[in-house]
């Protein structure tokens, strides 16, 4: 077995060290610092990205809350405005209705008074006309001059106080 031939041992040990040590130096000085630097910078990048995302999310949440608050306030204000307006309109309507009713009542009263006056006047005229008509008729029929007071008395009797 060639492995057990000691005449080749020194060269293998020699070349093992001659090759292993430079590899160690290259990996330690050039390769490993580079890999760790790259990995660390990547980790930092990821961390900072995550951090930024979290802060943006927080900001967005705050904006959303603000928006909702504003919206709620606006709703409240709108509801208050609607209520105020409808109250004012209702009050106005009631006031106008009341004024109108009052006016109407006054007009009715005035009209009733006018009607009563007209009726009285009409009745008075009827009596005068009736007295004249009766006097004239009496004169023409029987040629008797009747005194006006007498005729009035009779007419009053006939009309039964309705004159």
């Amino acid at each position: 077995m060639p492995q057990l031939d000691p005449s080749f041992w020194p060269t293998q040990i020699f070349w093992l060290f001659v090759t292993f040590i430079p590899l160690y130096v290259i990996l330690r000085r050039a390769v490993l610092p580079r890999i760790t630097a790259v990995l660390e910078s990547r980790q930092r990048h990821i961390d900072s990205d995550l951090e930024r995302a979290a802060s943006l999310k927080e900001e967005a949440g705050a904006v959303l809350a603000e928006y909702e608050k504003t919206l709620a306030e606006a709703r409240e204000r709108a509801a208050a405005a609607i209520k105020e307006t409808s109250d004012a309109m209702a009050a106005e309507a009631a006031k106008r209705q009341q004024a109108f009713a009052q006016e109407l009542a006054e007009k009715v009263k005035a009209a009733e008074a006018r009607i009563a006056a007209a009726r009285e006047q009409a009745l008075g005229q009827i009596a005068t006309v009736a007295v004249e008509a009766a006097a004239t008729a009496t004169e023409k029929l029987i040629g008797l001059q009747v005194r006006e007071e007498q005729v009035r008395q009779v007419v009053d009797e006939v009309m039964g106080g309705r004159g």
């Binding site: 080749f8 020194p10 060269t11 070349w15 001659v18 090759t19 292993f20 590899l23």
Partner: peptide, 17 residues
């Protein structure tokens, strides 16, 4: 006086490195 010849084994070590 010690044999440290460059051998096929040494060559493979160099290639590996």
């Amino acid at each position: 006086g010690i044999d440290i010849s460059f051998t096929n084994s040494s060559l493979m070590m160099v290639i590996a490195v």
